[in-house]
Nucleic acid binder design. Structure first.
Lengths: 341, 341
DNA sequence: ATGAAAGCGCTAACAT
DNA sequence: ATGTTAGCGCTTTCAT
């Protein structure tokens, strides 16, 4: 008889029988219950090892009402920001004994709603939701079924725990940096006029505030949309801007992928970075550090966002009635070659 | 009474009561069982909508023995290759009505074993395992508890389904490309002498074969290890090589992150790409297309790997006795600026 | 410190 | 085409 044949379908009762105790005692050992006599504990542990017992998570979850899982709703993983965020969340959750399930929303409103209300999100003990598609109008009617912590901006009619980066302030800092190195015609790359609450709106606001305080006129032709917030979208938007004769001496890209794509398009246009065009991104993904030239960007405190969000969620799960809180992580301007001129 | 209060804890019996049918009929509707009278189906659907019913996945899984989940074991998500792979797998699984749980192994042998044998992997209906740390020696004793498809190379004593890229052939093609553009001192970046079965070994083999066929001597000082297979590791290794006076006119990096880091280090060393040093990567992650210069690389057929692996796993789950199969995806050399000289 | 028994919500076997 | 019943494996309540 092969090892795996004895291991498949080993239950707590099997372990109990081998150890000569009741199922109850096995459960006590497995769940680190204190009051188990050391000798008993050891016999149970031996039986567990011998049989290769692993708890049946479905049974545990059904009975206890807790799955030991949290769900992380993000638009995609292809974008390094979300991949890194997901890793950070998984590690933070893991350090609290929780596992993480990633649910991809594709950044689409319909899928966000569907997933938020779906069985997977409900079966999680709590949900971390990085909102992208939902707007205030849609969300006001939504009431989440699980404890939830939002990553990003407020939504929902009900007050909600929230962890967010300081979008406006960070965008202002990024723009100020470009102003300080003497740039006056700064492309705001990623502007989304139809959006009302998301990152695009907030980062554009910070951009505009910085200009206003520096008495530099806001020019609408410099607020450029990107079809997608990735390399291709950034490159395309900058190419379009160049072709249409919009003049600019700097780019503030609303995320790093846009910025990297933009740098590529600028180079293709025969202009040099940072001499002709300075570039600042947002996110501080790994790639920004290694591109040529390396890219100045905003570190929005992603690691902290993950850690705080997981902690907040755990506290929310523990006490559904507690006062909702809001955390804003410190950000940091990381100056690199793309603005070092 | 708020909406969510009625929605929490709605069971199949609640729906049955409201619809005036038995739980069995509700289950039939939920699981798309054919023989349900349309009028009955509609009444059940109405009740489901009214109550906001969502099935309890733990209960379903406990009873049916199937969780509707597959597990994907990968070392990390930070590396774009794995992030993109994970997305591809999630989409492929989703198109078959399965959800995906990502389990991070950190590329460490111990964690790979622990996770492979752990409760989360067992509770999945099947496992997709991208091996990194396990070596043949360790794995020969391992017998997975769930249906499994390996991504990468063979392991385990038992024959196993396998989907793999053509590491040797692709590496040979990459190296040939560099030879064809006249390079003779090609750094093999990512070589891992102590490894016996993994990507590093196979890609180095392809590299060596290409050299041999071109009658170019294999020089061990050109086979360079990287501490980590990321940007930092690539940059560091190339810096070291440069500092130690190793001469090279090309780099074959064993993955794209290494290649991008290498390009950065080459540029820092004052040499130009591709004129002085040509660079080829491996993986064809998005970034390789957008770097400056854009990077020639091997497209290993990642999308197909994901799709085929999920299909193989589904068939393996359906029939544990079927003959194990092996699929090798076609690869493609993608020539870009880093070798266009 | 441990045992006995109930039941979480669902699906599958056995009904009709 | 649909109802009835049992039981998946665990944790929890009530025991002692």
């Amino acid at each position: 008889m092969l090892a795996w044949e004895v291991a498949v379908g080993v239950t707590i009762s099997d372990v109990a029988r081998v150890a000569g105790v009741s199922p109850r005692t096995v459960a006590n050992v497995v769940n680190d219950y204190e009051h188990v006599r050391p000798s008993t504990r050891q016999r149970v542990l031996d039986a567990i090892a011998k049989l290769g017992y692993q708890p049946n998570l479905a049974a545990r979850s059904l009975r206890s009402g807790r799955s030991g899982e949290i769900a992380l709703m993000v638009p995609e993983l292809r974008n390094a920001y979300f991949a890194e965020l997901a890793e950070d969340v998984m590690r933070a959750a893991s350090s609290h004994g929780l596992s993480t399930v990633i649910l991809l929303t594709e950044g689409e409103k319909a899928r966000e709603l569907e997933i938020l209300d779906g069985a997977r999100a409900r079966s999680a003990d709590g949900v971390l939701f990085n909102v992208l598609g939902l707007e205030l109008d849609d969300a006001i009617r939504v009431t989440p079924r699980s404890p939830i912590v939002l990553l990003g901006e407020h939504l929902f009619g009900v007050p909600t725990d929230l962890v967010t980066m300081q979008n406006v302030e960070a965008a202002k800092t990024a723009t100020n940096h470009l102003l300080e190195i003497g740039r006056r015609r700064i492309l705001a790359l990623g502007a989304a006029p139809e959006e009302t609450m998301g990152s695009a709106t907030l980062r554009l606001r910070g951009y505009a505030e910085a200009l206003a305080e520096a008495d530099v006129p806001y020019r609408s032709e410099l607020a450029v949309a990107a079809r997608t917030w990735d390399h291709a979208g950034g490159a395309e938007a900058v190419r379009l801007a160049q072709d249409s004769g919009v003049e600019f001496d700097a780019i503030f890209a609303f995320n790093d992928a846009l910025g990297l794509g933009a740098m590529r398009a600028v180079a293709d246009g025969g202009r040099s970075i940072p001499a002709d065009v300075a570039v600042v991104g947002f996110d501080d993904i790994d790639d920004a550090r290694w591109s040529t030239p390396s890219m100045t960007t905003i570190d929005p405190g992603r690691g902290q966002i993950a850690a705080i969000a997981v902690e907040m969620l755990i506290e929310r799960i523990a006490d559904p009635e507690r006062e909702p809180r809001e955390a804003r992580t410190p950000f940091r301007l990381v100056v690199r070659e793309s603005t070092a001129g």
